[in-house]
């Protein structure tokens, strides 16, 4: 801390305790022998075993994974195109409407999005016979729609920060626009695409409300199962599931952070080395 104000340190401590306390408790009680959440009955992993025997939860997890992978992927493609439009295309007809449609899902209450999409699917089915019934497809479409808004925000920020002249350099050296985009722009956008995809995947995996509206009777996602079992009361099995999800997210983020940190350190080292070599070159006299 530059200014070690006790007030600021206290706020941080309180804030993080508030954010992490409940999660840590959840993890702790997932290893509780006792069924009663508040009574410590000794260490046990039996809830994990029970979790993996629960077919309903496992099926739902598979549905969620499928929906998550598909919607995150489609959303990444559409979100990248949207970001490209907004940053690179200048004025086009209907830009204002598009800007509205792409930012609104970020804040739109989920009940509204869910209801409106369900009514759309019903109307479409009546009108053209598609989608026949509701299930994984309709959930995927619904999730793609709100995930693409998030992907757009992430990719747009990165795209705006890119040096335009790098693409121009590619074209100057003979690459046609599509090739310049595929060979130069896309690789430079890669970090944003990866984080956009992960964000979309997480949001999809997390969504209860929209999925509840647009899911059919045969397709139940993981949050829907969790929700109905939570409504019935606390279950240590859910604690075990929560622990697994938290650990998964944490490990993924830590690995990503570690890779970034290592790259940065390597770059710093290489640049200082290059500077030293440069100095040597000028010191030994110029050969030109």
């Amino acid at each position: 801390m530059q200014r070690r104000s006790p007030f600021l340190i206290a706020t941080l401590a309180f804030g993080f305790a508030f954010l992490y306390g409940p999660i840590l408790l959840l993890i702790l009680y997932s290893f509780n022998e006792s069924r009663l959440v508040t009574v410590w009955g000794g260490f046990s992993t039996k809830w994990y075993a029970e979790l993996f025997r629960d077919e309903q939860i496992l099926d739902a997890a598979l549905v969620s994974l499928r929906v998550g992978v598909f919607s995150a992927t489609i959303a990444t493609v559409l979100g990248t195109l949207s970001a490209l439009m907004m940053v690179r295309f200048g004025r086009f007809r209907g830009r204002l409407l598009f800007t509205g449609m792409i930012t609104a899902p970020l804040v739109m209450p989920e009940v509204i999005t869910g209801l409106s999409l369900l009514l759309l699917f019903v109307a479409l089915e009546t009108a053209i016979g598609w989608p026949a019934g509701r299930g994984v497809d309709t959930i995927t479409i619904a999730h793609t729609t709100f995930c693409m808004a998030y992907v757009t925000v992430v990719v747009r920020a990165r795209l705006a920060g890119l040096d335009r002249s790098v693409e121009e350099a590619a074209m100057d050296l003979g690459a046609r626009p599509l090739k310049a985009f595929l060979v130069i722009t896309l690789p430079m956008l890669m970090p944003a695409l990866v984080s956009g995809w992960l964000l979309g995947f997480t949001l999809s995996l997390d969504d209860l409300v929209i999925a509840s509206f647009v899911a059919g009777p045969s397709s139940t996602t993981l949050p829907m199962v969790v929700f109905s079992s939570v409504r019935l009361g606390i279950s240590p099995k859910i604690n075990a599931l929560a622990t697994l999800l938290v650990i998964l997210a944490t490990v993924t983020i830590l690995i990503a952070a570690w890779i970034l940190w290592r790259q940065e350190r390597e770059r710093d080292r290489a640049v200082s080395q290059a500077l030293a070599e440069d100095k040597g070159r000028h010191a030994t006299g110029r050969r030109a």
Binding site: I23, D206, L208, V226, L241, A242, L245, V246, A249, I253
Partner: peptide, 9 residues
């Protein structure tokens, strides 16, 4: 990145 539902729970 962790489940919203579970944090509420």
């Amino acid at each position: 990145w962790t489940s919203f539902l579970i944090r509420v729970y």
